[in-house]
Computed example of a mutant assay.
Amino acid sequence: MNLKHFLTIALASATLLSCNAQNKQADETVKTPAPIQLFNGKDINDWTAKIRFHEVGENYKNTFRVEDGLLKVRYDGYEDFNKQYGHLAYNKPFGYYILRVEYRFVGDQVKGGEGWAWRNSGAMLHGQSPESMLRNQDFPISIEGQLLGGDTTPTSERTTSNLCTPGTNVFYRNELYTPHCVSSTSKTYHGDQWVTADFVVFGDSLIRHVLEGTTVLEYAKPQIGGGNVSGYDETQKKDGQLLKSGYIYLQSESHPIDFRKVELYDLESYKDNPKALETITNTILKMKERE
């Protein structure tokens, strides 16, 4: 081996080692954040109820409650549901995050619940504050990750982790999407089984719905607009305004539901680092696959 060839190999090796060291150092700086337990398993002191026809903070008939370590939505005090749509808001807004909820539908729908609301609930994303909702407002202006349960009929299909848009619009398949709901590609989850839904939310850019490690729906540019919300303060509905952050709600739409986990990975500090954001997101989603 001549000296020139030797020096070439040495230089290449040194460059490779340097790159590997830099990559290792970069990987070590990308720390996956610990999950924030929005539901602590004990109480809902960090949450605010807003139920239609009632004032902010009034948890009518104890609709939202904690029993047996579960956050439950129940209607045993209702004589009739009467379109008293309820929402429970976590008391801090978020912009870039992964929200993970574990839920199951149980029991029977309360009297007066509408047909479409059977085994129907949701996780509301980028919502307005509960304090800005009026007494008779039905839904918060928000992006809804709709949760649906099947009817146990093997041939009956009913996807979950769908999208609904009370007072909002999104870009879906690169076009402004104005219909109220769009179905995901998920399978049907029948009966009272526990289901884990992840919502990957990157500010006003991208939102992904993930089940069992698979993306079942993806859309972009969440923004205020459209209808499907009533009784709101008009100053809160600025059509065309992109939604960069907001409040997270759990929904009460007339069918009992349990939540045993509501946790959030706050990714705000990585929003300007696309590579780190992708790495952390993939790591968190794979963590669920290994459980």
Rank of each mutant, 00 (worst) to 15 (best):
Y265C: 02
K4T: 14
G127D: 01
C181N: 10
L134E: 11
K288V: 14
P222F: 03
G95E: 10
P33R: 02
D68N: 15
E278T: 13
T281E: 04
R158F: 05
D80I: 10
N162W: 00
M124Y: 14
I9Q: 12
D43T: 13
E55W: 08
T188L: 04
I36T: 11
S161H: 12
V195P: 04
N59G: 09
G167N: 03
F64G: 00
F94R: 01
N40P: 06
A12S: 14
P166T: 05
L264M: 05
K238Q: 15
Q137H: 08
G150D: 05
A89Y: 02
Q241A: 14
R100Q: 15
V66D: 07
L264N: 01
V262R: 00
K238E: 13
Q251R: 06
G246S: 05
V200A: 08
D204Q: 14
P35D: 05
I224P: 00
I143F: 02
E114S: 10
H209Y: 04
D272W: 06
W116L: 09
W118V: 12
C181T: 11
C19N: 10
A220Q: 12
N162Q: 05
D204G: 10
F6K: 15
Y96F: 14
T168M: 04
G86C: 07
N91D: 13
N228M: 07
F202E: 11
T168K: 00
Y85H: 14
T29Q: 15
V210I: 13
S156Q: 11
K31M: 08
L243P: 01
D239G: 04
T178Y: 06
Y247I: 01
P179K: 13
P93H: 09
G246T: 03
T155W: 14
D204Y: 05
S245K: 14
G86N: 06
E58N: 13
V73A: 04
L277P: 02
I280W: 02
Y172S: 06
L71E: 03
T15D: 08
G86E: 04
G227M: 03
I284E: 05
R100H: 07
E157Q: 13
T281H: 04
A10V: 15
T153K: 15
K24L: 13
S142V: 02
L16F: 15
Y177C: 04
H209K: 03
E234A: 12
E157M: 11
D43A: 11
V30N: 07
R100K: 15
P274Y: 13
G150E: 08
I284R: 04
L285M: 08
T48R: 03
Y78P: 01
I284G: 04
S183I: 02
Y219N: 01
F81R: 00
G107F: 09
W118A: 11
V216S: 00
G167M: 03
E28C: 03
M124D: 06
I207E: 02
G231A: 08
P222W: 02
R100E: 15
G150W: 05
D258H: 15
T48E: 06
E212K: 14
T235V: 08
L242N: 06
P33G: 01
K4R: 14
A21C: 11
L125Y: 00
G246P: 01
D46P: 00
P93A: 11
S252E: 08
D108Y: 10
K271P: 02
A197K: 01
K187I: 09
A26K: 14
S205H: 12
L211F: 06
N174K: 14
N23F: 13
T159V: 06
